[in-house]
């Protein structure tokens, strides 16, 4: 197990280092002047020169790379050019919204998808299966922003259960914040849940064809008991992969939902920084997102090992 973790950690580190080099090369080294770009078409030469010094562009590429990495390691991501606050503070605030929102959405989608997938699979071909999978199909097909607006119309405008937009901040209280995130989380969760339910269904169907399910049935377990005791854990393996991918996607991909609900999340920050040509922020966020994706992959790998002893111990396989 330790060997397995070390191996994964090494590949994680290498991925991160390669990623920072690629990001650095794209933003700072490829031909073109970042300072002039950040100033925009109307900027003066003097201002661009000043910015160039501020960004340290007068120094060599290698030196800049290491001072950037060194800075990040000590928590210094630089100062945002447009907001004039430390990037770390900017990202910190946004992360406190985006990460809970993503986790919330994934919990919701898992809670919906797994039972739906299992029920559909265990009643394959029945009316229930047809209806559930039909709904899932619609869930994949409809745009989540449209669904979000629909939810707002129903739950905020008509019923008045939730506020339509905005985020009060965690200072306002845990439940208040959770409540404010509920409709956005549902909107994010719906298409993910639909995809996940389909994966779960086919995974369960596949597992139910396995010989060890037949062995379990021969022991005297009913079809349902065999599914629960022997099928689920095996069926979870492909579902974990999808969950990992969805987490990475939702973390910064929730931009449309964030915009609709005016949530101060990472997606919007990236978007705004790109629009304002704030390369300092863009560089940091992209790096952090890469780090998040790599970390999640690592966690998913650990979960695999938890589910599957063959990965833990190695062996004949």
């Amino acid at each position: 197990m330790i060997h397995y973790i070390l191996k994964r950690l090494t590949s994680l580190l290498i991925t991160l280092i390669v990623a920072t080099i690629v990001i650095f090369l794209i933003i700072e080294v490829v031909p073109g002047d970042p300072a002039a770009y950040m100033m925009g078409l109307s900027g003066s030469t003097e201002a661009a020169d000043a910015l160039r010094v501020e960004l340290g562009l007068d120094k060599g590429a290698l030196e800049r790379y290491f001072s950037w990495i060194g800075g990040m390691l000590s928590g210094d991501f630089g100062i945002s050019y447009t907001y004039r606050v430390p990037v770390s503070q900017l990202i910190g605030e946004r992360t406190l919204v985006s990460v809970p929102l993503t986790v919330y959405a994934l919990i919701l989608s898992t809670l919906i998808a797994i039972p739906v997938g299992v029920i559909s699979a265990s009643r394959r071909g029945s009316v229930v299966d047809t209806i559930l999978m039909g709904v899932a199909q619609i869930g994949v097909a409809i745009p989540n922003f449209w669904f979000a607006i629909l939810m707002v119309l129903v739950f905020s405008t008509s019923l008045g259960w939730f506020s339509a937009v905005g985020f009060p901040g965690w200072e306002a209280g845990f439940w208040v914040s959770i409540k404010a995130l509920t409709i956005p989380a549902f909107s994010l969760a719906l298409p993910q849940a639909a995809i996940l339910a389909r994966v779960m269904r086919s995974s369960v169907l596949e597992v139910m064809q396995e010989d060890y399910i037949r062995t379990a049935r021969a022991k005297g377990l009913s079809q349902r008991q065999a599914l629960i005791r022997h099928g689920l854990r095996n069926a979870m393996i492909p579902v974990l992969t999808i969950l990992g991918l969805q987490f990475s996607f939702l973390l910064a991909g929730g931009i449309i939902i964030e915009s609709i609900f005016s949530l101060p999340g990472l997606g919007r920050l990236v978007f705004q920084s790109i629009a304002q040509r704030d390369l300092i922020v863009v560089k940091s966020i992209v790096t952090l997102l890469v780090m998040a994706v790599v970390m999640i992959t690592f966690i998913v790998d650990l979960l695999y090992a938890l589910v599957d002893p063959r990965l833990r111990e190695g062996g004949r396989g």
Partner: peptide, 22 residues
């Protein structure tokens, strides 16, 4: 299910896949 549990034991062809790997 009760008959399978008490009165019949079964051995299958493919031992590599007949056991739950996890």
């Amino acid at each position: 299910c009760t008959v399978r549990a008490h009165d019949i034991g079964m051995v299958f062809q493919e031992p590599m896949t007949a056991l739950n790997p996890v």
